[in-house]
Amino acid sequence: MAKSVIIKIKRQADPKASSHWEEFELPYKPGMNVISCLMDIAADPVTRDGKKTTPITYDSNCLEEVCGSCAMLINGRARMACSALVDQLEQPIKLEPFSKFPVVRDLATDRSVIFENLKAVKAWVPIDGTYDLGSGPRMTAEEQEAAYPLSRCISCCCCMEVCPQFNQDTGFVGAATISQVRLFNTHPTGAALKRERLAALMGDGGIQECGYAQNCVEICPKDIPLTKSISEVGGAVMKQAIGDLFRK
């Protein structure tokens, strides 16, 4: 018998509907990934027991693990579907939407909270304008090599999904945003907003919520040194908080 791929997918018709599982069996092809499986299902949406169903709704775009769209739980692990190669996965492959973000439909979730968080911490360099003002600040190769890995964060939210502290009760901002604070606070021009960024990380939902579980750094698909960012930014927040006390 020809080789096949068995996939179980947790489905949910809309944000309020209850979820259920569907199982699919696809002909195996070399080089398959989870995305190509979902594409094959769309072309022939029939479950393993022969029932007609609908194509799976999921987020995707670049399929090169650089846009951050296709994050989901694959065999229980938060990761990008495009880089999940079928040959490296145990079958049946289990696909679920992220558990800590509102489900839109099937595997698509609403992760807009990360963009709101980036807004709250002013994750940008406050330039004067786009007119010609000459070159940027001179930076050493070492400074660039420290900044670049932080700047590769794809906002996939894997680090938030696996964080025990990231939930409705704490309102924790999550590792990705804290790491962006570190990135912008170390940029020569970005540092102008350092105090405001650190202030945004104080109080409820701020950096104090971190319980040092270290799940974030372990799961990050881009190997960003998230715990290092948290400890550096945490120290700066603490220093600023104490300074603020004395200034009162």
Binding site: V125, D132, L133, T140, A141, A147, H187, G190
Partner: peptide, 22 residues
């Protein structure tokens, strides 16, 4: 060249030479 300068000012982590230039 002006666009590169602007991107540099916006914080794009362009690779650097030993002297710290782009």
């Amino acid at each position: 060249p002006g666009i590169i300068d602007l991107l540099d000012r916006m914080g794009v982590p362009f690779n650097r030479t030993p002297e710290g230039l782009l």
